[in-house]
Structures are given as C-alpha cells and as structure tokens.
Design a protein around this nucleic acid. Structure first.
Length: 263
DNA sequence: ATGGTTGGTTACCAA
C-alpha cells in the first residue's frame, strides 16, 4: 500500500503534475492540501480518469481545501471543524483494510510569532491545542491509523536548514514545536519519516518560491509529516520525499511524501 | 534589515 501526502498549492494549476506523479509512482492514495478550489470547481473528472475511483473533497473558494484521492473504496468519511471554523483543513476516511487516514492542513500562522498581535498565529496555536485533545478523546492508538499532511511546523533541528536562524521564524518557534510534540506524545503517534530517515540527517519537504535556486541554496523545512499508530510501526517499509516534483515546471513549493506499508 | 515568488482573484490576500 502506497500512501502519499502532498501540499499541491492549487489542484487546478497542478493537475498535470498529479497525472505525472501517478504514472511515475503508482500511489494507492494521495492526500492533497491547499487545493484552492470550491467543490464545484474541483477537477473530479480528470482525477477519476487517472484511476482514482474514490475521491473525497472538502474545498472552499481561493483558500485551503483538502482532498483524498483513492484507488480503494473509502468509508466513514468525515471532517472536524477545528477551532470552530469551517475552513476546510481536515478530511478523514477508512480504507478497506481498516486503516483510518487523517489528512490535515494546519494553519501557516502568518509572519509574526506573537499570538497577542497576530491572530493567524493565535489560530495556529489553538488548532494545535485542539488536536492534542481530539485524538485521545475519540480514538485509541491500538487501531491502525495514519495522520498526514502539511502541519506547517518543522519540529527537529535537522528539519530546517539552520536551527538557530529559524528559532523566531514561524514554523520552527519553540512554542509551536512544543505543541506539535504534545499532539504526538498525548496519543502515542510515531513519526514515520524519522523512523526511516535518521534525525541526524537533514530532511525537508518545502522550499520557498523566493529562493533564486531552491536546490542549490537548499534552505528547506520539513513541514509535511506522516505519523502512524503503533500497530503500523513495523509495517512502514519505506518513506521517500519526491524531490523531483519540486523541480518540475511550475511546481508546488512542497514536495510529495510517499509512505509504503507492507501488508 | 529587506525583499524575494506563487496562485486565486481581480486590487490584494495568504503562503
């Protein structure tokens, strides 16, 4: 089973890249974030022609939006309105083997890492606090479950190109890292990417559009994540960040992340 | 210290 998370930064602008990725990597499921299309504008027909017979979408005009593209039947589909907002940041569904998928787009949080003056940062912190309570309230971690998506936080020193220079940059501030770690610890999630690729190595999934040459400067951050519950721990056979896709023509600023699970 | 780019929507907002 091959499961992918990808912040695509507009599904309509990147439709040909979904097709290319599908041909080159044969995923079973792709969880998309930042689709930036209301449901009536979602290119459902094109996606289905790629072989994704089961598609769940939750979109809004211009901003945010998540989708699950699947070649297997999806059941028990739903979402939660985080911090009381209906801003299309979460979708969940269950695969035929019983594995529950959660697809998240956590708020980016703006530029100023001070919740007193920046409402977007306050919203991000509230969202994270709610996530830390929500999973233990509703689930047990002895069921197979995967949480993936753009969490907009790079928690470890080697998740950013320069730890010290980014301590006051939103996505790597101590308060965000502390809250993300609390979500993991409260429920017992396993960081599948770091189980496969050692925390001693730099690992990024996002590179700014503003860099003159993203690959040469390589000032990346690991903003996208794949977490699994303990029953799936030993079934994670591989993780890959598909760097190629960041270098395709008119790319998203995020690379897709592939999770391979053995049966 | 500052500005750099992109997508969606149409004079900026969010990332």
């Amino acid at each position: 089973m091959r499961i992918v998370t990808w912040n695509i930064n507009s599904v309509r602008a990147r439709l040909h890249q979904v097709a290319r990725f599908n041909e080159e990597h044969s995923p079973d499921v792709i969880c998309l974030q930042e689709t930036k299309a209301q449901d009536s504008d979602f290119p459902l027909k094109d996606i289905k022609e790629m072989g994704f017979d089961h598609v769940e979408i939750l979109g809004q005009k211009s901003y945010n939006g998540v989708a699950i593209l699947s070649k297997h039947k999806l059941t028990d589909v739903g979402s939660h309105e985080w911090v009381g907002k209906s801003d299309c940041r979460h979708l969940f569904a269950t695969l035929p083997n019983g594995t529950i998928l959660h697809n998240f787009y956590v708020p980016a949080g703006g530029d100023e890492p001070n919740p007193d003056v920046n409402d977007k940062f306050a919203h991000k912190l509230d969202f994270l606090d709610e996530m830390a309570k929500w999973f233990p309230d509703l689930y047990s971690n002895d069921q197979p479950m995967i949480l993936m998506g753009d969490l907009n936080i790079a928690p470890l020193e080697n998740d950013v190109w320069n730890h010290k220079q980014l301590l006051k940059i939103v996505s790597h501030t101590p308060i965000e890292v502390e809250k993300l770690t609390a979500i993991i610890d409260n429920f017992g999630w396993i960081d599948a990417m770091r189980q496969i690729i050692s925390s001693d190595e730099k690992l990024y999934t996002w590179w700014s559009y503003r860099a003159r040459d993203w690959l040469t400067s390589n000032k990346g951050r690991r903003l996208d994540h794949m977490w699994v519950t303990p029953p799936l721990k030993d079934k994670v056979s591989d993780i890959k960040v598909v760097l190629d896709a960041r270098g395709w023509e008119k790319p998203s600023d995020h690379a897709p992340v592939i999770l391979d699970l053995s049966d």
